[in-house]
């Protein structure tokens, strides 16, 4: 489990959000949603701040809520956000080998979904409504149909090569 804080966040923003929602325990979910909208994820320091500021909460308690609901992410997303569909159709047509390839390639595991260099983050999503193209991968909004582990390798290689050029 990570012991680092994610330093350098703007507490004024967090504070404004708390004030706008009302510094009450019952508003916690709304506060967390807005903080996530602001930072694109929930930085540990923001969680600590919220847990300490609001009566009846604590950092550990807020962390518990943040890790309970799938809608919250505790990690910053990568420059390239990869969504791997694992809906029924995609699953049946072989989405897991694609996902496994991505996790291995970026050295990711359960609980760590963003590569160390911050370039790629990988997540599974349920049906994207494009079952005819299954299995589907979406990278920063662009849809890649009929993926296999070989096909995704080529796509990632291309992105990496582009990045290296410049």
């Amino acid at each position: 489990m990570s012991t680092q804080t994610s330093g350098g966040i703007n507490f004024k923003k967090v504070n404004d959000i708390i004030d706008s929602c009302g510094a009450k325990k019952s508003n916690l979910i709304a506060i967390l949603q807005k903080v996530q909208d602001e930072f694109k994820y929930l930085p540990q320091d923001a969680i600590t701040y919220i847990g300490t500021k609001i009566d009846g909460l604590s950092p550990a308690t807020v962390y518990g809520v943040a890790t309970f609901y799938a809608q919250f992410s505790l990690e910053p997303k990568g420059k390239y956000e990869i969504k791997c569909c694992d809906g029924t159709a995609c699953h049946v047509r072989g989405s897991m080998p694609v996902y496994t390839y991505l996790m291995q390639r970026f050295n990711l595991k359960e609980g760590k979904y963003t590569s160390d260099d911050g370039m790629f983050s990988v997540e599974t999503v349920s049906c994207l409504g494009a079952c005819g193209l299954a299995p589907v991968v979406v990278i920063n909004g662009k849809v890649y149909p009929q993926m296999t582990s070989d096909a995704i390798k080529i796509i990632i290689d291309t992105i990496v090569a582009q990045e290296n050029e410049g």
Binding site: Q44, I47, L57, S58, P59, A60, Y63, G64, T67, F68
Partner: peptide, 27 residues
């Protein structure tokens, strides 16, 4: 009134721990 320990995660991953799994000596 301190809630140093809390539940985290969900389902079979649930644990009881200090904030973000930090050391109990550093909270």
């Amino acid at each position: 009134g301190h809630s140093v320990l809390g539940f985290a995660n969900r389902g079979s991953k649930t644990v009881v721990q200090p904030m973000a799994g930090r050391a109990l000596g550093s909270v």
